[in-house]
Each structure stands twice: as C-alpha cells, then as structure tokens.
C-alpha cells in the first residue's frame, strides 16, 4: 500500500472542501483524480504532500503518517503543484540543483540526478536558459524534472498538462505513463481523455466526496445498464426508416431505435437495449435474412464524459 487515506476531512471556515473521504493507492499504480473545478482535488493533494493539515482523518504515505512523520513523507513524495510555480530568475540547472539540495540528495549524487532528469524530460537544449524564457511546455517539464529529482517513490501531480498544446500533452502523458511503471503516481485533472490515456484507475470526486472509484472499464460497465449498438445497413428497394425499424424491432430486448444518418439507401441506426444482452448476432442474422448489406455493426461504450456527468451532476 503506497498511500492510505482514511476518513479525511478539511474545512475552509464552514465549507467542507473535503468531506470524509477514504481511498488507497497501490504501488505502481497511476491513479487519476477526476472532478469538476472546486471538487476538492487540490486540497486532498495538498494534504497528502503535507502543505495543509487535515481537520479530521489520517493519511499514510508508504506507511508513514503525514502529521507525525511529515518530514519522512516529504522525502518520499515528489510534488508538482497546480499552476507549476517556478523561480523564473533561475536557470534550469540552477533550479534543479536547488531542488535536489533541499530534497536531501547527497552531494555526490546531485550531478548524476540532474543529468538523468535533463535527459528524461528532454531539457538538453534548454538547460542553460532562464526558466522565465521558456515556453509553457518546457516549464512543465522543468517542474516535473524538479519533482522527480530525488527519485521519489510517490509522485503527486496537480493538473500536469493544463495549459499545454496538444503535442506537448501527448509527450507529458507518455512521460507519466513511463514513470508509472516504477512509481506510484497520483494525478489530478478535469480533462477526461487524460484519465483514459494515462491512468489505470480513476477516482471521481464531487463536492468533497468520492462518487466513484475503480478501473475505467469497471465504471463503464457498472454505470450503464443497457447497451448501445450502432448499425449501418444498405437497404435495397428504398424502404423508409419506419419500415426498417419495425423489422429490427422483431428482435427482443430492444428499447429504442433512432436514425443517426441517412444517405442514398444507406441508413445508420442507433439501437439501445434494456439490458446487457448482446444482440449483435441477432442483428447480423436479420440482415442476412432480409438481404441488407451490412456496412457497420459495433457496440458503443459509455464514454467517461457520460459517467462523469451522471456522477457529478448537481
């Protein structure tokens, strides 16, 4: 168990930013922390990294308590705060050295760690530039490099890809995926594809409470009762949508049929079932029977967007 959060609460005045949440993160897991803005993601991360103290509950990182052994925890954790704050007047190498010194990396190891981080994060050409002159993508890499300079076992990244362009996002994501092979990574985001692209587990948090926790596939399966199937057929003889739909309805368990698209004899239908039975075989048989040309037949997964909206809608 890498991180163990139990019954954690944090108050800002009377408002409960985090309300009695519990979860655990295993070693080698990439956990996505997902929620609308203001849901309590940053607050939770700030508590885990010992920046804020909780009002109730406890957090253990690698078996060490954040309140009684805060110093040990801070040595084990690498943290990239929201907005990626940096000293803009320092150059990249100076900054990495400073971060390494304060993290307690031994003098002998510092040059080696700095070189490794420059390589891993692709900072080679920029290492002598002032951070203030770097583009946002490079700054993000500097932030990540500094967070990992002491080879921490746990990495906490608060919105690591915010403000980056699509190419940079892809790069940072693959960097995080690679890191996740050896480390425990917790990253927060409100961008849904990010979680699908990088994490093996997701926790959805809304108004300070956990509303879902599990692998993405499980969430998709659990939340959607029936299935949605897309069927594209070429119907000869100019039959109308109504005529086709009546024939499709002969298959049991179908709830609704709607027309997605229609162009010269080709019809794209969206078929929803009331339960999880797989009707793709029946649809295929039907097409063969009626002599329709089957162009496309696939099952649509409930998207994370939909899960997210269902869970966090107020």
């Amino acid at each position: 168990m890498s991180i163990l959060v139990s019954n954690l609460s944090k108050l800002y005045g009377d408002a409960k930013a985090v309300n009695n949440i519990s979860f655990e993160v295993h070693s080698g897991e990439i956990l996505g922390f997902l929620g609308p803005n203001g849901a309590g993601k940053t607050t939770t991360m700030r508590i885990i990294t010992c920046y804020l103290s909780p009002n109730a509950g406890s957090v253990k990182v690698e078996g060490r308590d954040i309140q009684t052994e805060s110093f040990e925890v801070r040595k084990l954790v690498g943290y990239l705060p929201e907005q990626n704050p940096l000293y803009l007047d320092m150059n990249v190498l100076e900054y990495l050295e400073y971060a390494a010194q304060l993290q307690g990396v031994t003098k002998l190891m510092i040059p080696r760690r700095m070189k490794e981080m420059v390589d891993v994060c692709g900072l080679g050409e920029m290492k002598h530039k002032d951070i203030g002159q770097l583009s946002k993508g490079y700054r993000q890499r500097v932030g990540l490099a500094a967070a990992m300079i002491h080879d921490p076992r746990v990495l906490i990244l608060d919105e690591p890809t915010s403000g980056l362009d699509p190419n940079q996002i892809v790069e940072i994501r693959s960097l995080i995926r690679n890191l996740g092979k050896q480390k425990t990574v917790v990253l927060s985001t409100h961008i849904l594809p990010e979680v699908q692209a990088t994490c093996n587990r997701v926790i959805i948090i809304s108004r300070g409470k956990i509303v879902a926790d599990g692998p993405i596939e499980d969430l998709q399966r659990n939340l959607h009762g029936g299935e949605k199937i897309i069927l594209e057929v070429e119907v000869p003889g100019g039959q109308s949508f109504e005529m086709v739909s009546v024939q499709v309805r002969s298959i049991p368990a179908i709830e609704t049929i709607s027309l997605v698209e229609e162009r010269d004899g080709v019809k794209k239908l969206s078929v929803e079932t009331s339960n999880a039975t797989d009707i793709r075989k029946d649809l295929f048989q039907l097409c063969v029977q009626k002599g329709w040309g089957l162009l496309e037949l696939h099952r649509e997964k409930t998207s994370l967007e939909e899960i997210f909206r269902q869970l966090t809608a107020h």
């Binding site: 700030r46 990294t49 010992c50 920046y51 110093f71 801070r74 040595k75 954790v77 943290y79 705060p81 929201e82 907005q83 704050p85 940096l86 000293y87 803009l88 971060a99 304060l102 993290q103 307690g104 500094a146």
Partner: peptide
C-alpha cells in the same frame, strides 16, 4: 504570490 512557497514547504525543509 507565485506559489513557490508551496514547493518549498512540501520539501523536507
């Protein structure tokens, strides 16, 4: 203001 205090304080210092 720049948020670097958060970086500093979450280090073992």
């Amino acid at each position: 203001k720049s948020g670097t205090l958060e970086l500093l304080i979450t280090k073992p210092v």
